[in-house]
Design a protein around this nucleic acid. Sequence first.
DNA 1: TAGATTGTTAATCGATTAACAATC
DNA 2: TAGATTGTTAATCGATTAACAATC
Lengths: 213, 213
Amino acid sequence: MSRGKLNVREPLLRRLPRYYRYLNELKNMEVKRTSSLELGERMGITSSQVRQDFNCFGGLGQQGIGYEVNALLGRIRKILGLNSRYKVIIAGVGNIGHSLASYSEAASEGFDILALFDVNPRLIGCSVNGIMIYDIDDMKEFIREKGVEIGIICVPKDRAQATADIMIEAGIKGIWNFADVDLYGPAEVVIENACLNDSLYTLTCRMNILQCF
Amino acid sequence: MSRGKLNVREPLLRRLPRYYRYLNELKNMEVKRTSSLELGERMGITSSQVRQDFNCFGGLGQQGIGYEVNALLGRIRKILGLNSRYKVIIAGVGNIGHSLASYSEAASEGFDILALFDVNPRLIGCSVNGIMIYDIDDMKEFIREKGVEIGIICVPKDRAQATADIMIEAGIKGIWNFADVDLYGPAEVVIENACLNDSLYTLTCRMNILQCF
DNA sequence: TAGATTGTTAATCGATTAACAATC
DNA sequence: TAGATTGTTAATCGATTAACAATC
């Protein structure tokens, strides 16, 4: 595993998954080689930015030639942490929790959803997509025993921080939060908000602003 | 409806829903008045930024006193476009589409989901949460007839742009995209990506970077 | 009045873009 | 060699923070 100082700041961090997607597209089109100009045009950013970004993790291109799609893709894949497998659990089997559990390609992409947890006694003991639903009181123990790395929070917002706290105490490494609140934890636990409402309100805000002109 | 020049740039746009959430929290706690310092501390940003942000849409506070929670909340609510009702449809009744359709509070928040659309003949004619599923070939007509404003895209990524194009032709105003690709359209149509994979990869990336140190 | 806190201008910081030498 | 395109430094642009006069 690479030990070099990876200097990935927020703006770049947000661009990385896009680079990954566009490079995958090129790969699927059987394009072997690309340039910062071509990639930038596709993505709607400057070639300067592309080169600046890629240089954050060392010279990946060849002067005069460009970038090898496969090599670049592999490097970004690694930086994104997609070369590892992850043990995942989902807390809260409501609409979103259920639909994430049903996402059958999760395993093939490296995310093994080991268990679901809920408070509802009617759900406990059932399964979704072959994944068992357990009592949320057993979650802490489960995380510890199985060495679960990622916890997905799909509980109501007033239970979200408490659920996160339990995950953190149990030694989870990352939390993917779908509840409609910001969650807080120690620096060594990564917390990513996927708050869907925020995204929807961003849409309506921009629709609203457009109308003002 | 306000006609003033609303100068909301990307970084502020991303903070607005957070302000909205934190102010709602204060309101629920029956706090009548707050200051840029208090709000900033809660949200982990500087008071300077809070004041700078709020000043983008005119003096909302009182020197020496602070901000009225209710007034501020109302203003931000309006800027976010949450004072209007929206006619919404969902294209693609897979996992995500299904779970969004099942979100029963949508209507009370101003989003009326009028119909679902899919290609699968087995789904057409069924309903989710009381909302009918129609043939996706009828989507264009439906949008035109009912004056649908927001289209949610939950189709597979290779069908996403084509689906968006149909929505745009039919005169949709905003697209909320859950497919794993960037979508493009004319400037007068707002497109918001809620690409969940990007969010997940951001999480694994940060987990990966933490481990490098 | 004194203290608090805004609105707003100026200073700083960081991110993006431009430019160009290095080199394939 | 000439053309292309990177890696990298410098210039620009924009966003955040600091400072402070205005004023409640």
